[in-house]
Nucleic acid binder design. Sequence first.
DNA 1: CTCCTCTACGAAAGCGCTTACGTAAGCGTT
DNA 2: AACGCTTACGTAAGCGCTTTCGTAGAGGAG
Lengths: 343, 343
Amino acid sequence: MVRTNSSPRLIDVAHASGVSIATASRALSGTPGVSDSVAEKVRQAARELGYVANLHARSLASGSTATIGLVVHEIGDPYFSEIASGVLSLAAEHGRTVQICHTGRDPEAEVDQVRSLVANRVGAILIAGSGFVDASVEAPMRFEVQRYAEAGGRVAVVGRHHLGVDSVLPDNRPGGRAVAEHILGLGHRRIVVVSGTLELTTVADRLEGVRDALEAAGLDAGDVPVLQGPFTREGGRECIRRMLADHPRTTAVIALNDDMAIGCLSQLRSSGVSVPGQVSVSGFDDVAVAQDLSPGLTTVRLPMAEMGARALTLALKEPGSRARRQRVPAELVVRDSTGPAAG
Amino acid sequence: MVRTNSSPRLIDVAHASGVSIATASRALSGTPGVSDSVAEKVRQAARELGYVANLHARSLASGSTATIGLVVHEIGDPYFSEIASGVLSLAAEHGRTVQICHTGRDPEAEVDQVRSLVANRVGAILIAGSGFVDASVEAPMRFEVQRYAEAGGRVAVVGRHHLGVDSVLPDNRPGGRAVAEHILGLGHRRIVVVSGTLELTTVADRLEGVRDALEAAGLDAGDVPVLQGPFTREGGRECIRRMLADHPRTTAVIALNDDMAIGCLSQLRSSGVSVPGQVSVSGFDDVAVAQDLSPGLTTVRLPMAEMGARALTLALKEPGSRARRQRVPAELVVRDSTGPAAG
DNA sequence: CTCCTCTACGAAAGCGCTTACGTAAGCGTT
DNA sequence: AACGCTTACGTAAGCGCTTTCGTAGAGGAG
């Protein structure tokens, strides 16, 4: 913390304007019970002194903070940075500051981050990003969140179920179904799914949707290989290399997020496979860059920034008696990376 | 803030372990002067009670915070989100939390954000992103930063001069020169620069570098059109439309950041212009996705995450007697979006 | 045995605010 | 004229910690 020896305190403002510290406090925070003339005098003095309230003292005394905490897996990932952007913009409108933590996709780091936010006594905690299918991995997180919520803290999550708090949930399963139907509708039958680890609920849900479509089309979902890799561009490249080796006759790749899809496009290009001529590729999320790729990426649009903003709105509202859920529709966006199945 | 009625305080830990609150404080914060046996007893009690220190109280009492503030123009922009990622990772290692503000590229919002960080008494402020050429726009920011620094606050900036504080400065000008030399070396002479507003120092510096190369090659820099637009993908698209209309015989586009370059590629593709067959395109920054574009983007690499981390390191160090400057080399990365000039 | 030095701890004074409570003044009622 | 109500302010008690200072007891030196 800055040595505040030089920075004025409330009492300095009070002296300068000839009132008590209590009146000064009320005048500056807008609490009623101060006459207009006095309030203006105080504000004037504060301005002249360059007074800025010490938020730590304020929080300690009042028992409330304007800070909200946001936990993301990796801020460098466009999916999360777009969510963060939505949160930051709305938070600024509400005069609230946001503390961001990233976990590097490590479930333990995640719990640590939440604990540290609790220690900071933030006013609300927002958690973005997939949860884990394995309940035992999810349990410590759930515990921490519940304890915070019971103590009166506000929590909202985006894209995560099972935490027992308010949530903004994208239609992952319907989205998966829509994109798979699109691929099937183009006549593709030799399909491969490129996926992050199935331990993530997001991945599992999207895959579920893909399977729904496959089975609705009378196919055996078991016949469609699911290649797993890191949920990143590099993971996409890796999966394509495996695909080219093990399933060379594939005509369509359904990647379960855009990052992997971008890696897929990149590797296919390096390997001399034309898209969508020989192989069609689809993604999921519609990150900003998806439309500017070549070919433009067919994907499922999720309004990330809006999802972040909505989560914040939920967290700022009075807590309901039970956890609220907001579904966010997923919309298929067809661009140039998918085309009719070759011969 | 969470109603802390239920959450244990230091005094509860002290009682539970049969020591004074002072000893409990020392034991938990690792201050010497407590016997090992007592310290362990206290830690044990804290664990059992699920005690987490109230950071506001701690900050108020000790006059120091573990929080550091980071100001970026737009967190959804990969340039900034990669810097943020570097900062967050290193901060986590130091057990520090990061409060991120984004300004939406509005100089006034920027100053407000800094003020709010000061109010929060953060331990250090990091400012990422270009400054403004116009000194009068920059002045309020400079004033705020100086006041904070004089009060003992630590500030570091990345990619910004003239604020009189420690800085991490990418080699924008040499980078601009390098990429322009590359383009010239490929035989291009009908070149267009696609640029953000010249009011940003980053833009001005890069452009300076480009001009250096042009003049070193014996060309008149005045003959090379500089198309300005928003420093975004959409800006890139817009500039290409203008270029196709006004300078149809152009063979090379030097975009001053990757975002614009991506927009250029996108618009050229929609307009049926082949890259690099008819027109070569280069970018600047080397955002993560640059290598996965089609064609892979020739650009100038800046180690964004490292720059963020370095700025944090500077801010965490003991303040020097004078502002330190760290230069970060810019490295030309040649990929597939640039090729020999046609005919 | 006295004196001094350490060490390990407790008492208590804040850090800079907010806010319950007390009070004086002003005004309308009965 | 006495009473109550309201408004506008001041007094002071904390919020939950850290840290200075004081002190009791242990141990060594003289």
